[in-house]
Computed example of a mutant assay.
Amino acid sequence: MRWTYILHCRGGTFYTGHTDNLPHRIGQHESGAIAGFTSDRLPIVLVWSQEFSTRIEALEAERRIKGWSRAKKMALIRGD
Rank of each mutant, 00 (worst) to 15 (best):
Y15C: 09
W3Q: 07
R64Q: 12
S69L: 07
E60W: 04
E51V: 09
I56G: 12
E60Q: 14
T16H: 04
P23I: 08
E57Y: 01
S39T: 05
I44F: 04
I6P: 06
T38L: 09
T16P: 02
Q50M: 10
H18A: 11
F52I: 06
I56D: 12
E60H: 08
G11H: 04
M1D: 06
E30R: 15
P43Y: 08
G27S: 09
A58D: 01
W48N: 06
K66Q: 14
D20Q: 10
V45F: 07
Y5W: 03
L42A: 08
G67A: 11
M74T: 11
S39Y: 04
L46D: 06
P43F: 05
R63P: 00
R63Y: 04
S49G: 04
P43K: 13
R2E: 07
L42W: 05
T19W: 05
E30F: 00
T16I: 14
L7V: 01
G36A: 04
L76G: 03
G79H: 06
R70G: 00
T4D: 02
H29I: 05
L46P: 06
R64P: 00
Q28K: 13
P43G: 12
C9L: 13
E57S: 08
R70E: 09
R25S: 09
P43Q: 12
T38E: 09
K73R: 15
G17P: 03
S31N: 10
R10W: 03
M74V: 13
V47Y: 07
H18W: 02
Y5G: 02
G11Y: 03
T4Y: 00
Q28G: 09
D80C: 11
L42R: 13
L22A: 06
A33F: 03
L46F: 04
A35Y: 05
A61K: 14
C9D: 02
G32W: 02
T54Y: 11
I77H: 07
D20F: 02
K72N: 05
H8K: 15
G27Q: 10
S69F: 03
R10L: 08
D80E: 14
I44E: 03
I6Q: 00
R41C: 04
G17A: 09
L46M: 13
A58T: 01
I77F: 01
P23T: 06
F52L: 10
H29N: 07
L46Q: 13
N21K: 14
T19N: 13
L42F: 01
K72Y: 06
A61W: 03
E60A: 12
Q28H: 05
L46Y: 10
F37N: 08
R25I: 02
K73S: 07
I65S: 10
T16Y: 03
R63S: 10
H29A: 07
M1G: 13
V45E: 15
W68I: 01
Y15E: 05
G67L: 05
E57C: 01
F52H: 15
R10F: 00
R64S: 10
V45Q: 15
I44A: 14
M1T: 05
W48I: 05
I6N: 07
